[in-house]
Design a protein around this nucleic acid. Structure first.
Length: 274
DNA sequence: CTCCAGGCTTTAG
DNA sequence: CTAAAGCATGGA
């Protein structure tokens, strides 16, 4: 077991995990057990340090985006002089954008559409339990996120029985396509082409494509527009546009290459007062 | 009971 | 092309 240690001021596990970018994590002892693809770690904060215990140091260093200077990003956020963004960048100073597995993001965010986070977590958990490879971490068994090949063996009815609702057919269709084609061709694409290609899969529209692009392909210029962003666009930016694609264009033009980070700070700040 | 949740597909105009 | 209906499920 290896241990990674870093500054807690720029890595608050609760903020990183509870902000809707990841669905497989569970409170454990002083922090959380976190699961990504077929790997696991235990993350916790003691005093002013955050620790990550895991078997694959390189994977989780990259996963938690530890090579990035968040102080600079926070300064940039405050420089836009938008009160809500400044508040998010201040209160959410311990936030980080994760670098997750692309295929896990594809299925997870297909499930996320028109859904709430507790239910999303439950559906994903049941899918992993049913189809994921059995693994062990800290003396406890768990299931990896299933491969596309494993997902593709099941019909839509299977996913409906696990509570996926009308998204059942999307999971069946997209897993079959990916099991057949793979997604290697997606990695080298420029971000706009990647988004366009992603929206070609059944169950992936513009918002879900932006989440996959941002969290699964490391495209930090992506800016997902969901119900929360739409709400803060109206209430905090005085926006009048109604088309989500146009709202997306407004924000990507405004924030540029770091739009994804700004999106997370805004999302965080808006959800604070629920 | 209705409304909403990190929206998408299908159909109508 | 844009706009609106329909969609499963569970909690508030």
């Amino acid at each position: 077991m290896a241990i990674i240690e870093c500054d807690a001021a720029s890595f608050n596990p609760r903020d990183v995990l509870e902000c809707g970018q990841i669905f497989r994590f569970y409170p454990f002892e002083e922090g959380y057990k976190v699961f990504s693809n077929n790997k696991a770690c235990y993350v916790y904060t003691r005093g002013d340090r955050t620790f990550i215990e895991c078997d694959d140091k390189d994977y989780f260093y990259k996963f938690f985006d530890l090579g990035r200077d968040y102080a600079a990003i926070i300064e940039k956020a405050k420089g836009f002089n938008v009160p809500l963004l400044t508040r998010g960048a201040t209160l959410g100073a311990g936030l980080r954008l994760l670098n997750q597995n692309a295929e896990e993001m594809i299925y997870s965010f297909i499930i996320s559409q028109n859904n709430n986070i507790p239910r999303i977590k439950g559906i994903i958990e049941r899918i992993c339990s049913a189809l994921g490879e059995e693994k062990e971490f800290l003396g406890e068994k768990y299931r990896a996120f299933p491969t596309s090949a494993a997902l593709a063996t099941k019909p839509a009815e299977f996913y409906k029985a696990l509570g996926a609702g009308y998204r059942d057919a999307y999971l069946a269709a997209t897993s079959r396509r990916i099991a057949e084609e793979g997604i290697e061709r997606l990695y080298p694409l420029p971000t706009p082409a990647l988004k366009k290609e992603l929206t070609g899969y059944t169950g992936i529209g513009p918002k879900v494509a932006d989440c996959i692009s941002l969290f699964g392909f490391g495209r930090r210029e992506s800016f997902p527009v969901d119900t929360w962003i739409e709400k803060l666009y109206r209430e905090d930016f005085g926006g009048t546009l109604k088309d989500r694609n146009k709202i997306n264009a407004y924000f990507t033009d405004l924030f540029g290459e770091d739009a994804g980070y700004m999106q997370q700070y805004l999302f965080y700040a808006k959800r604070e007062n629920m």
